[in-house]
Design a protein around this nucleic acid. Structure first.
Length: 570
DNA sequence: GCCGTTTTCGGCCCGACTGTTTTCAGTCG
């Protein structure tokens, strides 16, 4: 059983224990262990065998034993036992805003509610009123919550959340009472999806700002409003919170509401060990505030280098910050070119020349065009004849362009058996070849992995496209052992793309450090199908930063000359 | 459940907001 699956089961055990009313610290231990396992670099079976798993912080004797059972038998008796006592629908109740384990437990035990449908019915019959701690308002809120759950899945692509956040930011930035203002939360951390939007502002008084926020355009309903915090739901369905604090409190509030929760917990623990106390309003030694002008000052006071928001996931960033070993993260301005761009020749919308001029306008020196290959019929993949015609057009456009070089490439389907989609003599005519899986998603993990490994071994392949094929909020990636894929890419000196389309962001940032450690370079590729799509590299930068990548790790930060040398041309 | 220079028991991050209360529990982040 793989780590992700082990982590899922441990996480669910934590939740089931909460529903049973177990010691909250015990529940937390399971949740924490799940996260730890998920982020572990090594092989779980190997770590069990050599005893190194028991050395991991947060994994003690009991958890080691349960993980061992999961890895060796594929399931956990303790989990099955807990699961048997709780109907599937009860777990789903936890997704209703305002319902936590305690309330779900009460509703289930006293009213026999075991699904969202049951809960809705119970609310409509006013049966929640009979329960201690529930009233008319909570019943109404639950009904609204069920409605909202049905309307949307509750998470939003980073591209969408960031755009909505930016609109709110612009609205508030113009307010005369606002001193400092930042977008916080998962949007600031550049997570690939967000549940809601967090904004933090500083001001001498909050009332007028709050009023601007709660009555702003696009606000559908106000779900909370107080002196320091207001919450709204926008017409688009996404929720947004605004916190207003004094300007002295702003740095700690910003750090706090940027999260992640896990990073904050670790940061507070560190503060506590240093005899300090950190909360959203400040850093204190006893009752005395320790002045912090900005976030960097907070980290400095805790003996740490400044941790960029993208890294605040409790994934080793505090240890690295302590040792002054944080990477200098790649920035958008370092990108010198792009690969993986489609044109009208296959399923893109732009003509070659206009795509080239758009790329130049974004400051790029080279543009790697890669339309679909012949097997990708749904995407009007190029026949061998069309490939030659496109090469001729690229030569003509290159002759006209100054300051930008178009590179002839292809996004070749990786066929079912791992072969590429043209004969070798055609493949040899491309300056680069991206290999992507677009079919046979249902292969077993072993088959899929071998298929991709075979493609990586092909001498004409330059890089692997969207390595798992996932569509965020849409479909999971196909089953593939990314550890083996990364190892194969390293062995064959191939690049792995970070597909920067906000629907993909694949390679996942959680795997980038592993790729980097294996010596695999990353290309930040827009997979653009329109002129505007070229700008999606920004999302790729966001996740590359989350993945601890520096400019040196990203092949597209190299200039044209270096790229041509790398591609074996001069 | 885990953990330990206060070490094998007794802590474990902490505050705002809400709805239900009349002093507080639950949820959220």
């Amino acid at each position: 059983m793989d780590k992700t699956h082990v982590a899922e089961i441990l996480d669910e055990v934590g939740t089931l224990l909460e529903l049973r009313g177990e010691n909250p610290f015990k529940c937390r231990a399971y949740h924490a262990a799940a996260r730890t396992i998920d982020g572990l670099p090594g092989d779980l079976a190997q770590m069990l065998a050599d005893g190194s798993l028991a050395e991991v912080k947060g994994i003690g004797a009991a958890l080691t034993e349960k993980i061992s059972e999961l890895v060796t038998t594929g399931s956990l008796a303790y989990h099955r036992e807990l699961r048997a006592a709780v109907p599937d629908g009860v777990l789903e109740l936890l997704r209703v805003p305002g319902l936590g384990p305690k309330k779900v437990k009460a509703i289930h035990e006293h009213l026999g509610v075991a699904s969202l449908g049951d809960l809705e019915y119970a609310c409509r019959e006013n049966r929640l009123l009979a329960l201690d701690g529930f009233g008319a308002k909570s019943q109404q809120k639950i009904l609204e919550g069920i409605e909202r759950l049905r309307r949307n899945v509750g998470r939003y692509l980073s591209s969408f959340a960031a755009a909505e956040a930016r609109t709110l930011y612009d609205l508030l930035r113009a307010h005369p009472d606002v001193i400092r203002l930042e977008i916080a939360g998962s949007v600031r951390r550049r997570k690939e999806t967000s549940k809601d939007i967090d904004l933090v502002a500083s001001a001498a008084r909050s009332d007028r700002i709050m009023s601007t926020f709660t009555t702003g355009p696009g606000v559908e309903s106000v779900t909370g409003s107080g002196e320091t915090k207001s919450s709204v739901v926008l017409a688009s369905g996404i929720a947004a919170d605004l916190r207003v604090v004094s300007d002295a409190q702003f740095p700690c509030a910003l750090a706090y509401f940027t999260g992640s929760k896990e990073h904050n917990v670790a940061l507070r623990g560190r503060a506590q060990r240093l005899g300090l106390k950190l909360n959203e309003y400040g850093l204190y030694r006893g009752e005395e505030p320790v002045p912090c002008a900005d976030e960097a000052a907070i980290y400095a006071a805790l003996g740490l280098a400044y941790v960029p928001p993208e890294l605040r996931e409790d994934a080793g960033e505090l240890e690295a910050a302590e040792r002054r070993m944080l990477p200098e993260l790649v920035e958008r301005g370092r990108l010198r070119g792009v690969f993986h761009v489609h044109t009208r020749w296959s399923d893109g919308t732009g003509e070659i020349e206009e795509v080239a001029r758009a790329a130049q306008a974004l400051g790029f020196e080279y543009l790697g065009l890669s339309d679909h290959s012949q097997s990708a019929r749904y995407a009007r993949g190029l026949s061998i004849e069309q490939v030659r015609e496109q090469w001729a057009e690229i030569d003509q456009v290159n002759a006209r362009l100054k300051g930008l070089r178009i590179l002839k490439g292809i996004e070749s389907d990786i066929l079912k058996d791992g072969a590429l989609d043209y004969p070798d003599e055609i493949l040899a005519g491309f300056e680069f070849v991206i290999g992507s899986v677009h079919s046979h998603f249902g292969l077993s993990e072993a088959e899929q992995t071998e298929r991709i490994e075979r493609a990586l071994a092909h001498p004409r392949l330059t890089m692997l496209g969207h390595p798992t094929g996932r569509l965020l909020l849409g479909r999971d990636g196909y089953a593939v052992d990314m550890v083996r894929v990364i190892a194969a890419a390293a062995r064959h000196r191939k690049v792995i793309e970070v597909n920067a389309s906000p629907q993909r962001l694949d390679l996942d940032w959680r795997l980038m450090r592993r790729a980097k450690e294996a010596g695999v370079n990353i290309a930040i590729n827009p997979d653009a199908h329109t002129l505007a799509g070229l700008a999606d590299v920004d999302y790729g930068i966001g996740v590359a930063r989350k993945g601890w990548l520096t400019a040196a790790d990203v092949v597209t930060t190299r200039g044209l000359g270096e790229i041509l040398a790398w591609l074996g041309r001069t």
